[in-house]
Amino acid sequence: MTRYYRPSSTADALSALAAEGGGARALVGGTDLLVGLRHHTIEPTLVVDLKAIADLPEPIAVGDGGIRVGPTLTMGELAAHPVVRRRYPALVEAALTVGSVAIRNRASLVGNACNGSPAADTVPALLVHDASIAIASRAGERTVPLHDFFLGPRRTLCGPDELVTRIDLPRPPDGFGSAFRRLTRRRGVDLATVSVAAGVDRDGRVVLGLGAVGPRPLRTELDAPFDAADVPGLVRALDERLEIATPISDIRGSREYRHAMVRVLARRAILAAADRRTSGEMAA
């Protein structure tokens, strides 16, 4: 049966995780974990609640080089943060699509990114913003680029006795715009059928993050720079580049639909991101 533990230090948390031999689960927002507990798809021997740990990175630290997000920052806090809103509009848009207000008051960015769901809403935006992720184990801490972090559905580089302690986002270069677009089955709260984040820099370099179109979230770039006057060219380039998407058919959508939609959303996200380069502000 499940036990509950609320450690006060990272070391205690890591020891507890290690002691369970893979049977423990870390808990922050619980919005995924509790659903798993209810359906008995996860039956941990120990739930390790990270919210009382004193020596974890603070929820959010803003520096000249970028921002550092600790495990306890909620989606709601992230989306309301003025610096995040200014610099990382795609991430804010993505965070605001996660569940409802009540979910966003609990769900953490680190939790959403780290559970390895191919459809996690914030991951495409984090990929576009070149996030990296810090993983702590009893042996020490390592940092990996986020796009190397995902191995497959629900499989990541973070081992069962390890913790993700931080997500780092570099400061986007001046003139970088980003945007997030998502397709769902209804207008209200829903899981993504397809999601795309796009970033366009001052020189027109385009980077894309793709969700729910493969076993893991994808990051890719376009070869040719963005040219607002040549949308047909953009469409052709996307058509070719998005062959990397390998969606499956499931209850939320067919393979064919996702194939087509990732292209539509990518184009829309790129155009919106490019627009934001000048204004640098989020559209209302």
């Binding site: 509950y4 808990l27 619980g30 919005t31 509790l34 659903v35 739930v47 609640d49 709601g76 207000v101 009540a102 979910i103 008051n105 609990r106």
Partner: peptide, 9 residues
């Protein structure tokens, strides 16, 4: 803060 009590231990 508003939360779903079914998702809180």
């Amino acid at each position: 803060r508003a939360v779903n009590a079914c998702l809180v231990l």
